[in-house]
Simulated assay, not measured.
Amino acid sequence: MQLTPETTAFGRHETFALRYGWLTKGFLALKADCSVFESDEATVQLGVGKNMVASIRYWLRACQLIEVSSNRPTDLGELIFDPETGLDPYLEDEATIWLLHWLLASNPKQATTWFWFFNKFHKSHFETTELIDALKEYVNENVKSKVSPSTLKNDISALTRMYTKSKVNGKLPAEESLDSPFSIMGLITNTHGGYDSTPSYRGQLPTAIFAFAVTQFFESQSATSVPLEQIMYSRTHQVAPGAIFRLVETDVVNKLEDMISLIPNTYEIRDVAGQLQIFKTGNVKAAEYLRKYYTGISQEVKS
């Protein structure tokens, strides 16, 4: 969850933004055949072209659902996407999209551009050229390997297509005009001649998903307390939940208070010398928040 200049990844999506159904399709195929992505029959099994096969595998890796080295499902991948026991294998709950967004933007090793945009790029209104230039500058200053301008341009194109509603264009094939599931969050919107990505109140972000992110953040820090500022803003090469979810500070505080109520005796907010600090006082694991959320939804449906 921290950028390492020697370990980064750009352009591995084969220019395809993540599409509806791909994660489910790829994960289920992998469960049925652990070597599906190396198979000559992958295009038939997945029903897509060869480059799309590579793209699906990439997005599964970038969203931390399968291991990079072995292509085996991660524990989190199994928890969400297992066809028999998974919490939301068919992406029927918007909460899962928020969760996947966190997993993608907090993964600088496999999705460096996504990590950079949501943690380090702070301009609210921008055009494509500004994004590309800012990413080039960041890469030149913080990444060891050389990355071609065309690769960075393709990353920016994939990112903006993933997070914005598609514009109606009769020249595009129907499949190309389908929105990515990530567009429903409204984290990037189209404006006249550019884009907008402004911190805001995110009432549609479930407390449990925010709590999952904060708990993972604490686990990555191996810390028992952090200043509120570190939850809000990315310092050095760290991730920050508030930045990734594009939250204003008051909403971060509100969600922290809701998180404390969700599973009591796990976190506290204290004023230390005039600075708000978040203390972890229990041993709750991040996945417990997911189980609590999806179990609650399941019970509501049954009733």
Rank of each mutant, 00 (worst) to 15 (best):
K285E: 14
F121N: 00
L205F: 08
E137S: 14
Y20W: 12
S39V: 00
T129N: 15
A9F: 03
K165P: 03
G49C: 10
A213H: 03
A208G: 07
P181C: 04
E249H: 08
S55I: 03
T128Q: 14
S157N: 13
V143D: 05
L104I: 13
P89Y: 14
Q221V: 08
I269G: 06
P73L: 04
H101R: 00
Y20M: 12
A223I: 07
G26L: 02
E176P: 02
I66C: 06
T266C: 13
T215V: 07
D251T: 03
A240Y: 11
K280Q: 15
S197C: 02
Q299K: 13
L100E: 01
K167Y: 00
I184S: 15
P83H: 11
E41A: 05
K25N: 11
A62W: 02
E41N: 05
Y90A: 11
H125M: 10
M162E: 06
V272W: 02
Q216T: 09
S124H: 10
N119S: 07
G47L: 04
F210D: 01
D33I: 05
K136E: 15
N169R: 06
T15P: 07
N265S: 15
Y138A: 12
V301D: 09
Q2L: 10
H125D: 09
Q216C: 11
L135E: 03
G242M: 03
F16P: 08
S55E: 04
Q64E: 06
A240N: 05
W116D: 00
D251P: 02
H192M: 11
V139C: 09
G21V: 11
G170F: 10
V44M: 10
P83M: 03
F10W: 05
I231V: 12
W102Q: 03
A17Y: 14
P5W: 09
K31M: 14
S200G: 02
A105E: 06
T295Y: 08
V168Q: 12
I209H: 04
S303K: 13
G26M: 00
